[in-house]
Amino acid sequence: MSERDEIRRKELDEVIEHYRGQEGGLIPVLQKAQEIYGYLPEVVQERIARGLNVPLSDVYGVATFYSLFSLKPVGDYKIGICMGTACYVKGAADIVDRVGSELGIKVNETTADGRFTLEVTRCIGACGLAPVLTVNKDVYGRLIPDEIPGILSKYKDM
């Protein structure tokens, strides 16, 4: 096991320890585990199931029910295009098309180099700035498709 794996596993064990025996602890543990690993691989789900003493089927059931959990690795930069009503009527679909064609991927795909993942998200509540996209925690609003290459280039060189 690499050093990085060991650190992450230790972190995960601490989280499990903290929530063990607490009612409703499974979802917070999965949220923290995803922060640590970026997604929820099978081995992590197994470790959580054992640690919290709940059936693996429960862990898997919860992990697949909520849309913010991912069972597949995601890119370094997660691009989320808001598909709330306000963004939709202001042309969010054109933004999705443009980001997709710039990166050569479809929605819910990751670029081959592992840098970008493209997702459409539920309303993020920035309706006053529609249409909106997020790159990790950065928010870009009042978009037109021609602005997309400029935004992406900021992250391509990072």
């Binding site: 009612e23 409703g24 602890g25 499974l26 917070p28 919860v62 909520y66 913010l68 959990f69």
Partner: peptide, 18 residues
């Protein structure tokens, strides 16, 4: 964690229960 139905009160409670 991203589930619209959790705005419904009994679904929300299930979610708080993990």
């Amino acid at each position: 964690s991203g589930a619209f139905v959790c705005g419904e009160e009994t679904a929300l409670l299930a979610s708080v229960e993990g």
